[in-house]
Amino acid sequence: MSLARILVPPKARRGDVVDVRIAIQHPMETGFRMDNNGRKIAKNVVNNLVCRYNGAEVFRAELGSGIAANPYLQFYFLAKDSGKVEFEWVDDAGEKGSAAASIAVTA
């Protein structure tokens, strides 16, 4: 079960800079650790995360093993119209995740 939490304000005024946050449950395996039997654990990190607002990309992150386990990002976008805020991410194993929320924008 891939699990993430997102925080997008339900409403904003046009022209506001909106604060969004995302936390994803993921070990962000560095590839440098061994398991209890001394076998190397393969690197597996969330390597890419994109945030789209009404289809247009507003933020993109290429992440590496230097990001802490259970990655957390807080960033911003400019409110224009009511619509959908979508997050999509993928890890080294090819497992994809997504989350979405809607925002109501008033004049």
């Binding site: 800079v17 909106v18 962000m28 560095t30 440098f32 607002y53 247009a56 990309e57 507003v58 933020f59 993109r60 992150a61 290429e62 992440l63 590496g64 093993s65 230097g66 990001i67 802490a68 990655p71 957390y72 990002l73 807080q74 960033f75 911003y76 976008f77 400019l78 409110a79 224009k80």
Partner: peptide, 28 residues
């Protein structure tokens, strides 16, 4: 990062729609 085995922690793409050039995160 200067000393992590992989020096690039993150590469962030943004633009005018991002509204504010800032990011809060947690690193190793």
């Amino acid at each position: 990062s200067e000393k992590n085995p992989r020096p690039v922690i993150a590469k962030i793409g943004m633009g005018p729609d991002t509204g504010r050039a800032a990011l809060t995160t947690r690193i190793r």
